[in-house]
Amino acid sequence: MEGPLLDVRLEKAGYEEREGVVRNVAFTVRAGELVGLIGPNGAGKSTTIKAILGLLKRTEGEVRFCGPGGTYAYIPEHPILYEELTLWEHVELAAASYGLTGERFEERAERLLARFKLGDVRHHLTTSFSKGMQQKVMLVLGFLTKPDVYIVDEPFIGLDPKATKELLDALNEERSRGAGILMSTHVLDTAERICDSFVLLDGGAVVAQGDLDRIRETCGMPDASLFDCFHALT
Rank of each mutant, 00 (worst) to 15 (best):
P4K: 08
P4R: 04
L5D: 00
V8F: 00
V8P: 00
L10H: 03
E11K: 15
R18Q: 02
R18E: 05
G20V: 11
G20A: 12
V22Y: 01
N24H: 08
V25L: 11
V25Q: 01
F27T: 00
R30P: 06
A31P: 14
E33Q: 09
E33M: 08
V35A: 08
G39Y: 04
G39K: 07
P40A: 01
G44E: 01
K45S: 04
S46V: 06
S46N: 08
A51D: 03
L53R: 07
R64C: 11
R64I: 15
G69E: 06
T71S: 14
Y72F: 15
P76K: 10
H78N: 14
P79L: 03
I80K: 13
E83P: 12
E84W: 13
W88I: 14
V91C: 05
E92L: 09
A94Y: 12
A96I: 05
A96L: 09
R108G: 07
R108H: 07
E110I: 13
L112V: 11
L113E: 03
R115I: 03
L118H: 12
H123N: 11
T127S: 15
T127R: 15
F129R: 02
G132H: 05
V140D: 00
G142D: 07
L144R: 02
P147Y: 07
D148W: 01
D148A: 07
V149Q: 09
Y150G: 06
Y150L: 09
Y150F: 15
I151D: 06
I151E: 09
V152I: 13
F156Q: 01
G158E: 10
P161K: 02
T164R: 01
K165G: 03
L168Y: 00
L168A: 02
L171V: 05
G178H: 00
I181N: 02
V187L: 12
L201V: 10
D202T: 00
V207E: 08
V207T: 13
G210W: 02
L212Y: 12
L212K: 12
D213C: 09
G220Q: 09
P222N: 04
P222G: 01
A224M: 14
A232T: 05
